[in-house]
Write a protein that binds this DNA or RNA. Structure first.
Lengths: 168, 168
DNA sequence: GACCCGTTCTTGAAAGTTGAACTATGTAGG
DNA sequence: CCTACATAGTTCAACTTTCAAGAACGGGTC
């Protein structure tokens, strides 16, 4: 295969593959919408913001540097800045200067933030369970885990030659 | 289990389940981000908008009623209105009045819209293939299809008692 | 017709996201 | 010290999404 200007017919998806792809899109968008609405209603924030609180709650001293939080939540620093600003207004997160690096900021989960999680986590887990784990057999759960890990490997940013595909 | 005010300890996710859930979130967000960027770069629109053009391209006379298009793309009518307005500005979609129902509108794919798809579809398919089908075994693809279908069933809006869970 | 109710689609404002530009700080080399 | 460059985080403008009205039509019923 040439690197650029490849004029050969692309390898379209087979009928089966198309069907799987559509099912994938269907299910993932429905689930993300469902969780977004559930959390917006019960916790007053979108799913991504909830994920930020969860990350913080599991970090030592319930705080993380902005960049680390962005990486673990797989969002841009820009997006995180806006998100933390909003969560700060709600009183769920507090910013703290990093003593060792004056550029740095910690995002720290407040007690109120912990309380929000304590109050809303059960409903969220129930939603996840109802949509996924209560409907799949143990074998399917295991298969799903394997499949998702494989897919993630191929998409890992800065993964093995991720930005140097011409070297493969 | 009580219907409301259930004070029993919620069924938290097991370690294995948590791991699968994280892999799922990780993979799906990475893939969606990847496709969004790929299409924004190569086609000048986000993934959802691209999906709208695809739906239209497969419809008879390359047109659909707004509500049907919204349903098949699983987005709200409001969102679709804004999206079609944007696609119309690009010249890729045209609105047409419905003769039989004066409230109705058709969204019709223009020749330019077809051309955009023709030009960008190969790259998009390649991205999907590279992220999913080239990395999974045929068995895994089949497993994924089954799993996604099962999950979608449980999330289907207006599905079996979807909004009446207390009757189950 | 007049009324009511449901459906179709649009609109406007607020919230969220993106990518690029920008500030401030750290780090390495001369 | 000074320059050059990298890193951490924010900000701005453009764009997208959501939510709550709202405008217009259709299909009854009286």
């Amino acid at each position: 295969m040439g690197v650029m200007g490849d004029r050969t017919e692309p390898r379209w998806l087979s009928d089966g593959e198309q069907h799987v792809w559509r099912s994938y899109l269907h299910a993932t968008t429905l689930l993300e919408d469902h969780l977004d609405r559930q959390l917006q209603r019960d916790a007053g924030m979108p799913h991504v913001y909830y994920g930020l609180l969860v990350q913080l709650s599991q970090a030592p001293r319930r705080r993380l540097r902005m960049t680390e939080l962005a990486k673990s939540a797989k969002i841009t620093r820009s997006r995180l800045s806006h998100a933390v600003a909003r969560l700060e207004k709600n009183g769920w997160v507090r910013r703290e200067d990093c003593p060792s690096d004056k550029r740095g900021q910690f995002a720290q989960l407040t007690d109120e933030g912990v309380e929000v999680l304590r109050r809303t986590a059960p409903g969220h887990v129930a939603a996840v369970r109802q949509a996924m784990f209560d409907r799949l057999s143990p074998e399917q759960v295991e298969q799903l885990g394997t499949i998702m890990r494989v897919m993630a490997e191929g998409l890992e940013p800065a993964g093995p030659d991720a930005d140097l595909p011409w070297l493969r």
